[in-house]
Each structure stands twice: as structure tokens, then as C-alpha cells.
């Protein structure tokens, strides 16, 4: 057992957990942040993606010890109160989700993609960059549309800030 301390969605948290605990289990089982999902056991599906220090990573493949001291953002932490993050809004408006299971990971990965590419995103790039996120429902068509739409919205909201 170890004590890990990290910041999750802006709040300092501390937990006593077994060293074999994965970040995703800490979030789901100890912090009740069940928006981060588990869809595979081979680090492939991306349902578990969160941001660690601003980078989108698979929380099922990070030991809590590795995340000790870092700043973690989950799907629950990206909207400002009632105001959705532009990526969340774009997924809703473009029907970028069906069962919703892959959605939190998709959104967290997609925000990272837009952060990296800014305005230089096109359909092929989005499709390639989504390689680590599997969706069984949407055929990706509307996910790609959502990400491209959000890229525009995020530019506008960044410009406004």
C-alpha cells in the first residue's frame, strides 16, 4: 500500500491504495469518477483516456505511482459549470455518440488532437489521430465531424479569451 497524492480536476486528492492499482481504478473505484471507462485489457480502445499534465493518455496503462504528483483531468472536469466544453457541445450537436461508452475517451483524445494541430486539422488527420480510440456504434462518421466542428469552435473560443 502507498499513499498517492495528485490533483484531479483541479482538486487535491490523496488515497491509500495498493501499488498495483491503475490510474483508471483510482478514478473509478476510489474517487467515484466513473465517466472514465474501461473497454479493453490490452491498452487499445481508448475508453479510459484522461489528461495527465495536459497530455491525453490511457489511464488503464498508468500505475497510480506513476501519476503521483501529477495533474489529472477527466471527462468530469472539462466543462465550466453548466457550460459544456466546445468538444462536448460538438459531439452532442453532430450526434457524435450513440451508446456513449467510448465517448469520454474520444472527447479527451479529441481535445488533445485539436490542441496539437490547432487549425491544421483535416478529415484524414483526424481519422489517423483517432487510431487509439475504438467506437463500435458510430462508424466514426459523426465523430470525425464533431472533432472538425469543435476545432473551429475551440479556435473561436481561444481567440475570445
Amino acid at each position: 500500500m502507498s499513499t498517492v497524492k495528485l490533483t484531479v480536476n483541479g482538486k487535491a486528492v490523496s488515497a491509500d491504495v495498493e501499488d498495483r492499482t491503475l490510474l483508471v481504478n483510482l478514478l473509478r473505484d476510489h474517487l467515484n469518477l466513473t465517466g472514465t471507462h474501461v473497454g479493453c485489457d490490452t491498452s487499445q480502445c481508448g475508453a479510459c483516456v484522461v489528461h495527465i499534465d495536459g497530455r491525453a493518455v490511457k489511464s488503464c496503462t498508468v500505475l497510480v505511482g506513476q501519476a503521483d504528483g501529477s495533474n489529472v483531468t477527466t471527462i468530469e472536469g472539462i466543462s465550466k459549470g453548466d457550460e459544456l466544453h466546445p468538444m462536448q457541445a460538438a459531439f452532442r450537436d453532430n450526434h457524435g455518440l450513440q451508446c456513449g461508452y467510448c465517448t469520454p475517451g474520444m472527447i479527451m483524445s479529441a481535445i488533445d488532437i485539436v490542441n496539437r494541430y490547432g487549425g491544421k486539422l483535416d478529415e484524414d488527420t483526424v481519422r489517423h489521430e483517432l487510431e487509439g480510440n475504438i467506437c463500435r456504434c458510430t462508424g466514426y462518421h459523426n465523430i470525425v465531424k464533431s472533432v472538425l466542428d469543435a476545432a473551429g469552435r475551440m479556435r473561436v473560443s481561444q481567440a475570445a479569451e
Partner: peptide, 27 residues
Amino acid sequence: YLAGGHTLIPVMKQRLASPSDVIDLGK
């Protein structure tokens, strides 16, 4: 040793490796 963990952790999750100690080089 553990670096990025993107080979070792999946293998440990599958219970195909059982290190007594994991020494993180990544930091």
C-alpha cells in the same frame, strides 16, 4: 524496470509478468 509502461503494464495486467518490484525510470 518501468519506463513508459506501455509494454510492461499490459503484460502485468494479463498476469504474464509478476515483478516483485517495479522501478520507474520514467521520472
